[in-house]
């Protein structure tokens, strides 16, 4: 019983970590990398400020 709970908990931990990594990568792509004109213009100053390769 304890073992089952421990395994279930480990699985949700991995799910949470994966969700955070996925969300982080998706947000980073939008903020720093997407080249659609709209995204580029609005994100322009913070991209330069943070040092993302821009233009």
């Amino acid at each position: 019983m304890t073992k089952t709970i421990a395994i279930a908990r480990a699985n949700t931990d991995i799910l949470g970590i994966a969700a955070a990594l996925f969300l982080g990568a998706a947000l980073l792509f939008v903020a720093g990398f997407a080249q659609a004109a709209g995204a580029h213009d609005v994100a322009h100053d913070q991209r330069h400020a943070i040092g993302f390769p821009c233009h």
Partner: peptide
């Protein structure tokens, strides 16, 4: 907000 939330998630 978007960039630093991304950094925070990592």
């Amino acid at each position: 907000f978007v960039s630093f939330t991304a950094f925070a998630m990592f």
